Computed example of a mutant assay.
Amino acid sequence: MTACQSGDSVPEPSSTAALSATPAPTPSPTSDKEAILAAYREVYRTGPLAERAQPQDRRAILKPVATQPLLGTMLKGIAALRAQGRVTWGQPVFHIFEVDIRGDGALLRDCQDARKAGQADDRTGKRLTHGMPHTYMVAALAKEADGMWRVAKMTQLTEPCSPVS
């Protein structure tokens, strides 16, 4: 999941023979902060995939990015949403302004713009709801035994926030 960032350099081989004899460079592991940001964003991408999957497949779709208690909360929420004939549409615009890492735990704060996301009728696709700008989300993440960061809890605070530019 990592790629060269601007400013990174990869030494050029001196000949074609050197190119074939040189193993491909191993990308450096991502920092904890990068992994936390990726896990948080991925929850929003995999949620809709799990909604459209068969109930028995949803846990496997969410498990790489969510852990308990959020995993159970999402599974129950998806079941309730689907029972109403609804799905989610769109994605919020993230304005993550703080990531506080303490050992194997982290707290992320996001002032997202959720106006281009909401719920829709699954049958007709008609958009029924939409989110709001300045939605203050706080996510707790855990680095699990496999070394992967997963979102454990998400809370929407009642007070609005201001995105940091």
Rank of each mutant, 00 (worst) to 15 (best):
I101K: 12
P25K: 06
A53I: 03
R127L: 14
R109M: 06
K63F: 00
S15K: 10
Q54T: 13
T124Y: 11
M148N: 14
V138K: 04
A35D: 03
D8T: 01
S14Y: 10
A24N: 10
S15T: 09
E98M: 11
V99A: 10
A35G: 09
T124N: 11
Q91P: 04
T124C: 13
D100N: 15
A80E: 15
V138M: 13
R41P: 00
V93G: 00
R115G: 12
S165E: 10
A152K: 02
I96L: 09
G118P: 02
T26L: 10
A140Q: 02
E144R: 03
C111W: 00
S20N: 07
Q5I: 07
P29A: 15
R58N: 07
V43M: 07
Q91A: 12
K33S: 05
V138Q: 13
D110Q: 02
L107E: 08
K116C: 05
G103D: 09
E42S: 15
T155C: 06
S165Y: 11
M74W: 04
A39G: 06
P163C: 15
E98A: 14
P64Y: 03
V99W: 13
T30K: 00
V151M: 04
S9Q: 04
E34V: 02
T16G: 05
P48S: 13
Q54V: 14
I96W: 05
E42Y: 11
A53C: 05
Y136T: 03
I61E: 00
T158F: 05
G125S: 09
E159V: 02
G47Q: 06
S20T: 11
R127H: 15
G103H: 11
A21S: 07
M154G: 00
R127G: 06
A24C: 09
L62E: 00
C111K: 01
E159S: 03
S28R: 14
P133T: 14
A117S: 14
M148D: 14
G105F: 08
E159N: 07
A117Y: 00
Q56C: 06
H134K: 13
V87D: 08
R41T: 03
L141C: 05
L141F: 01
A80F: 02
R123P: 01
V164Y: 08
V10E: 03
G90K: 09
